[in-house]
Amino acid sequence: MHKMTSVQQAAQKIRDGRRLSIAGTVEALMQLPKGEWVGGSIPYFMGDEGGMVANADQVFVTDLSDLGQISVATYATADIHLVTERAPDNGLSLLILPCGSSVHRRFAAEAPNFKDAFLKPTVGWIAGVHLDDIGKKTPVVIDGRTGEFYEDRGAVLYLALPPERLVQVDILNLFEPESGDVIRFDQTAFTVDACTINGEPASLSAYVHQRGLAHGRLPLVGDFAGASINASLQTVHADHVDLYAPVFPGVDYRFAKDLPDYAAAFREREAHQSVDGVAFSCNCILNYAFGELHGKQIGGPKGPFTFGEIAYQQLNQTQVTVRLL
């Protein structure tokens, strides 16, 4: 089960012993009883009526209890690398990290190098706040066992599957790279400026300003062996650029081609994909905001619009979907 429910329904599930991952506002999460669940703050969702902002009476519940054995855990920055090592040999880790925290930044920079990162898939999302509250409130995760909220821990729900089942992780990235300038970086970083463009030393901020891309609607698209992995622009300063996900050395980046109608593009792509068997899905708050998806149906799976998505590593402006085979 992966759907929006009332806080009362979610509370009943917890009391019934279901082991859950829950997304909602802090006000909603605070109302839930203690139990074997983890949660994260986010008010934006794709619901039955389209993109929406949840109130304190609603939460989005992912219940994998019938699929295998569930356990929950939290990790601090210093031990977040253990999230994959301690994952079940066959299964899934559904991880939530508070946006901007050190645990988020460490995971984003290092996850591909965590032990067993590609043997034990990690999916999930980056917790956030209402866009009007950025800088005023801090994203959090919650350990439902204690009811404690954390600004700098990751919360994970582990699903151990029987040997005959496997996890399939898919992404839907609407953005295609331009065919032009290739941008490369020499370090893993959320804040960048020095780069090479077509092999020549350059300033990313100057390039972005010169091309009129400082609005941030178009991400950098990295070529990861054919997979398009976005790093979205957060703020373009005079002499550096802040990103929502790190860029990596050894990866060719190009800016994305323009995307005039997100909703239509999503509908077209989602029309070719079944939602049958979806165990988990999330999408990006930037797609919600730039795509003006509030109140719009795009088809496809439901789920939170988050401050970053996780499919083995952190992504931006991408829909993540998990199925079990």
């Binding site: 190098n113 590609f118 062996a225």
Partner: peptide, 18 residues
């Protein structure tokens, strides 16, 4: 290797950068 499998692609990139 020719693949459209996300986990394989990301693992390939990790190997290339390692």
């Amino acid at each position: 290797l020719r693949t459209q499998h996300l986990g394989t692609q990301l693992m390939m990139k990790r190997m290339e950068r390692s």
